[in-house]
Nucleic acid binder design. Structure first.
Ligand SMILES: Nc1ccn([C@H]2C[C@H](O)[C@@H](COP(=O)(O)OP(=O)(O)OP(=O)(O)O)O2)c(=O)n1
Ligand SMILES: [Mg+2]
Length: 777
DNA sequence: ATCCTCCCCTAC
DNA sequence: TAAGGTAGGGGAGGAT
């Protein structure tokens, strides 16, 4: 969080246990009853035509298994499964804590907890045991990889959707899952009024919505919810609680080295924050997700921007992450002064302590060396229990996806609340935008599309004025390897003018632009900036639609009326100024009557500008727009278009010549109608464009660098991903209507030779996807 | 017709 | 080394 002072008064908490139970993810205590098996001894021989994996659900010692493939010897499979499940039965009840897939699957088997309606059905199910089915099928032929998907779906059984409480293992202690989430009070915004369903995707959102009074108690602290700060503050307390109390079950506690120490990781570090978290927790310390003044012992950082030093408060201590690794190696907490980056209050001194540290270090390193190396290796091992978090910690796509979802939750909550965020500028400024004279009687829509210019680069350049206007790209690669396969997340406009694009490989980008400067990611800053811009925009209006972490639409029709603003450009400039003042990042604004026009306008506004497609300009404007820029039309459809027409066309003007019938054959009816309107600029926003967006599904995928050679490795990752999905489901308080398990395997004939075979074996990706039950959120 | 499931495609 | 995640729209084809 950007400003620590918000949390400074968190101390002196009154403890109350009851309430905080509501705010943590329910732990699963029930014993696992499902197992994942592979058909073959290893996956080396899993070719597309064979069954690769089956998932068995075991309930009250009976096995439920549907086989729907002809060419599988189902009897033999069942026998083997039964055998294995017997082994599994011997396991102790509470020792199996990591079997998340099982828990996930098991939650299907226990929906009788959820409500009465199910009770009558249970009788039926006595006979007809299976309420979970297993389909195994093969994906259509693909050129490189073959995907085998296992779909777990609930048997429909009857009328409408059955409810599945996810992760409610212990029905006695817990409230049954609510059948439907309802709003207990009337929402005050008109946009929310039509949609009675609460969009509580995030758990935080749920708390937000629970009371009319906005004071919420969590983990012994009282929160009054008024703005994003409060919202985040609450989230933070909850996060810290989760992290430290639940301890995330990755490793057993190894030592108590860091007892009474707590750290906050500031910025992007090596090892990444989540790895540090595991190290700290494993060695008895506390990890704080956010810095809490007076409570957090140390800030961990890799470096400190000079600009940041001014904002450091008394007694804040910044040290290098080496303090952690070396303390573990030494078997005791070392003197922080040897790892000091910056300390406010007591500067200087402490350098000579090096002696001490070195001496004491040599005393007892031997034993702990094994601990260190084993735990360090474990973190680097793709098959370790923290693999997913480690992976996520470095994945930009994961970051922007989850951030976008967070922002949507935030907006949804604001809409429910119906209250603007407090403005960070005097309201007078808005009134001054009015030019006085004529009353603007036109009651028309006016849409702004706000998008930060090369988001990641802008963040990086805040403290690198020397690189302004230079060719810069954000990537993991440090440029030491010239043909790096690292992807460029974002590149500056100078780099774009050489042909570099977002998403390009570093290797290819360097061909276009040899003096490209590569800079690392700053994940935490993206989170902060993203939150800031949403806070800012939500202080203007709540007619806001989140698109991504750096991009949103706002409808300023009513705002312009309210403040009698005739020239939207003045308002846009005001917004841009506010964003720049607060985040030091440039934003561009596209203005149009509809979201389409606003969006197309943004391209012309960039970089760092405003562009307004007025109604008068519209026709002419559309003629020259690129077809590819129409939202929803990607490379595949462009290819299909050129293939079907027989020649390349690129502008919307050319596309306007085509009759809708022809487009329909190329794109299908829906897309064709959409594009037919879009290329003329006459597409209207749908009814619910400004309404709250309800999440319909939750998924976890990992598709990079997975190369397993043993079945056990597969199971481990599957379980871990299952656990992750389960966490997300409970967090978002959603109930799954169907859960899909995905894995991809490489086909046998794609291996070049039999020599390659054992090492290449099968690379595949895995993922879980849960579709929400209609009405379950 | 209308639903569901398994894709493919798109966007950031 | 690098970390190709995540959610939604929609079409084809089968079940109802
Ligand atoms: N293939 C991609 C595309 C985008 N992003 C990330 C980095 C971008 O900074 C951010 C926002 O994406 P935009 O499409 O808005 O692109 P930029 O903000 O970088 O540039 P601009 O909006 O100025 O065109 O998302 C990414 O990681 N990988
Ligand atoms: Mg952008």
């Amino acid at each position: 969080m950007r400003s620590p002072d918000v949390f400074a008064d968190d101390d002196g908490a009154v403890n109350s246990d009851d309430s905080f139970e509501n705010f943590t993810v329910t732990p699963i205590r029930r014993r696992s009853q499902a197992i994942v098996h592979s058909e073959n001894e290893s996956f080396d021989f899993a070719t597309g035509s064979e069954q690769a994996t089956v998932i068995e659900i075991q309930q009250h010692q009976e096995t439920v298994l549907f086989e729907e493939k002809e060419d599988v010897d189902s009897e033999e499979t069942i026998n083997r499964l039964l055998d294995s499940s017997l082994e599994e039965e011997l396991e102790d009840i509470d020792c199996e804590h990591n079997d998340a897939l099982s828990k996930l699957l098991q939650s299907f088997g226990h929906r009788e907890n959820s409500n009465e309606r199910q009770e009558e059905k249970e009788e039926q199910e006595q006979e007809n045991r299976p309420n979970v089915s297993l389909d195994i099928f093969e994906q259509a032929e693909d050129n490189a990889d073959e995907e085998i998907e296992i779909q777990l779906s609930e048997e429909p059984e009857d009328d409408e959707a059955t409810l599945l409480p996810v992760a409610l293992p212990d029905g006695n202690n817990l409230e049954p899952a609510p059948k439907r989430r309802r709003l207990d009070f009337a929402p005050s915004t008109s946009s929310a009024a039509d949609g009675p369903v609460v969009p509580a995707q995030s758990d935080v959102g749920e708390y937000w919505n629970q009371n009319n009074t906005k004071t919420i108690e969590i983990h012994g602290n009282n929160f009054e919810i008024n703005n994003f700060h409060d919202y985040m503050r609450m989230k933070i307390t909850k996060l810290n609680h989760q992290v430290n109390v639940e301890k995330s079950k990755p490793f057993e506690k190894i030592s108590e080295i860091f007892k009474n120490y707590s750290v906050y990781v500031n910025g992007y570090t090596e090892p990444p924050a989540l790895v540090i978290r595991d190290l700290i927790v494993a060695h008895g310390g506390e990890y704080h997700c956010y810095y809490m003044h007076g409570r957090t012992t140390y800030n961990i950082a890799s470096s400190l921007a000079t600009a940041k030093i001014a904002t450091i408060r008394e007694k804040e201590i910044f040290i290098k992450s080496d303090w952690i690794t070396e303390s573990i190696a030494a078997g005791k907490p070392l003197d922080y002064r040897d790892f000091l980056i910056y300390e406010k209050g007591a500067q200087e001194k402490g350098r000579m302590r090096e002696f001490f540290a070195n001496n004491s270090q040599s005393q007892n390193t031997e034993e702990d060396h094994s601990t260190l190396s084993s735990s360090q290796n474990a973190f680097l091992d793709a098959r370790n229990p923290n693999f997913i978090r480690d992976y996520y910690a470095r994945s930009r796509l994961h970051l922007i996806s989850t951030l976008a979802q967070d922002m949507k939750d935030f907006v949804a909550n604001l809409k429910l609340e119906g209250k603007l965020i407090e403005k960070c500028f005097p309201e007078e400024e808005l009134k001054q935008l009015s030019e006085g004279n004529i009353k603007n009687s036109r009651n028309e829509n006016m849409v702004f599309h706000v998008d930060l210019d090369c988001f990641f680069v802008s963040v990086a350049l805040r403290d690198r004025v020397d690189l302004k206007e230079k060719e810069v790209a954000i990537t993991h690669s440090k440029g030491t390897i010239s043909n790096s396969m690292s992807e460029i997340a974002s590149c500056s406009y100078a780099a774009r003018s050489c042909g570099v694009k977002n998403g390009m490989l570093v290797r290819d980008a360097l061909q276009h632009c040899p003096n490209l400067t590569l800079l690392p990611y700053q994940f935490d800053d993206y989170v902060n900036v993203s939150q800031q811009i949403y806070e800012i925009l939500a202080s203007y209006t709540l007619e806001l639609r989140a698109v991504s972490c750096d991009e949103m639409y706002i409808n300023v029709g009513t705002l312009c009326q309210q403040y009698d603003i005739q020239d939207p450009i003045l308002l846009a400039e005001h917004i841009r100024k506010t964003i720049r003042a607060k985040t030091r990042c440039p934003a561009s604004v596209g203005i149009g009557r509809t979201s389409l026009l606003a969006r197309l306008a943004t391209r012309h506004a960039k970089p760092d500008g405003v562009y307004w497609v007025t109604e008068e300009k519209r026709i002419e404007f559309m003629l020259e727009e690129k077809i590819k820029d129409l939202p929803g039309l990607g490379y595949q459809m462009m290819d299909r278009l050129t293939a079907c027409i027989g020649k390349e066309i690129s502008t919307c003007g050319q596309l306007q010549q085509k009759p809708e019938r022809e487009l329909s054959q190329i794109f299908g009816p829906k897309l064709a109608t959409k594009i037919f309107k879009q290329c003329r600029g006459v597409e209207e926003d749908s009814e619910d464009f400004w309404k709250t967006q309800l999440r319909k599904s939750v998924s976890c995928d990992i598709n990079y660098g997975i190369r397993f050679t043993k079945r056990e490795e597969l199971l481990q990752l599957m379980r871990a991903i299952g656990a992750e999905l389960e966490r997300k489901l409970t967090d978002s308080k959603m109930m799954a209507g169907a859960i899909t398990v995905k894995l991809m395997t490489k086909k046998l004939h794609h291996y070049k030779s039999m020599e390659d075979y054992p090492t290449l074996c099968c690379g595949y990706s895995t993922g879980f996807h849960a579709a929400s039950l209609p009405g379950s959120n």
